[in-house]
């Protein structure tokens, strides 16, 4: 029983990181109906920038995190500007292929010796790990930091989207581009803003992930990216609460299937869920039902 609680806590930690990535998928999909397959790689870049800025530039961790978020926000904006915007009015498959191209470019570009290098790097702990033992249930300060950071970021995002003028404009754009233009909303600027926001969250996810699982390489974004994508679909792609819910479920599925079924089957189980959702309820748990608006 104690063991099970510990596993659930591990699953929660992983699910919270997935949530940070899944939000970017779902927000971008909500606003331009594109699955940004390069999103997992932005997550990887986020981890590397924090690594480089702490190890090579000796910056303190609390500066490395916002710096990494900022650089990745810019990266997200650049990706959209160069790879997706020119294809905005082309067939949707074109932007999707472009997204896969960007993903490969970042992964293999990152593997170059003068960029991040192809090797696994071990991330030094930014602070000493403390384990608390609460009558058998073990909780680490890393889990607490992950939880607190993610809750703060999600609350911030919730505030931005629900209360600010730009957040309302994001929702208006996601509903109808032309109607939003007629309000005087600069749709291109809102799309850039959405990419910046999603990419910054993915970067934060990358840093937290590399603290919790301290090994990074240029291909580390693929699997968490796909899991978070699955989470976004499970929750209902386009829905922000859906992405959070889906990510928490995926975190549990991942950890619990590794612990109690087979660690070799964990990915297979996760993606079986993706296939089942697409077959049985493509709109996801909290997604809008009915035909998709384009």
């Amino acid at each position: 029983m104690i063991e099970a609680i510990n596993q659930v806590l591990n699953g929660l930690q992983l699910g919270l990181v997935y949530a940070l990535i899944a939000l970017g998928y779902t927000m971008v999909y909500g606003i331009i109906r594109l699955i940004n397959f390069a999103h997992g790689d932005v997550f990887m870049v986020g981890a590397f920038i924090a690594f480089i800025s702490t190890v090579n530039w000796h910056l303190p961790f609390y500066i490395a995190v916002p710096l990494s978020m900022l650089i990745c926000a810019a990266l997200g904006v650049i990706i959209e500007r160069l790879a997706y915007r020119p294809l905005r009015y082309a067939a949707r498959i074109a932007a999707l292929i472009s997204a896969i191209g960007v993903s490969l470019l970042i992964e293999y570009g990152g593997s170059l010796k003068f960029v991040f290098g192809p090797n696994y790097r071990v991330v030094p702990q930014p602070f000493s790990v403390v384990q608390w033992d609460l009558s058998g249930i073990s909780v680490s300060n890393i889990q607490v930091i992950v939880l607190v950071t993610v809750v703060i970021l999600l609350a911030g995002l919730q505030y931005l989207v629900a209360r600010t003028k730009t957040g309302k404009a994001m929702r208006a754009v996601s509903f109808d581009h032309d109607a939003a233009r007629l309000m005087g909303i600069n749709v291109d600027a809102i799309i850039s803003y959405t990419f910046a926001l999603g990419s910054a969250l993915a970067a934060a996810g990358g840093v937290l992930y590399s603290v919790a699982y301290p090994q990074i390489n240029p291909f580390m974004g693929i699997m968490p990216g796909l899991k978070a994508f699955t989470a976004a679909v499970l929750g209902g792609i386009g829905s922000i609460p859906g992405a959070m819910l889906g990510a928490l479920i995926m975190g549990q599925v991942d950890v619990l299937s590794a612990a109690y079924i087979s660690s070799q089957l964990r990915d297979a189980i996760a993606f079986t869920i993706l296939i089942l959702v697409l077959l049985v309820k493509p709109s996801g748990l909290l997604g809008k039902t009915g035909p998709e608006k384009v």
Partner: peptide
């Protein structure tokens, strides 16, 4: 109209 926004938010837009 933005069906996913409230009436007040529509007017704000």
């Amino acid at each position: 109209i933005f069906a996913n926004l409230t009436v007040a938010e529509n007017l704000e837009m």
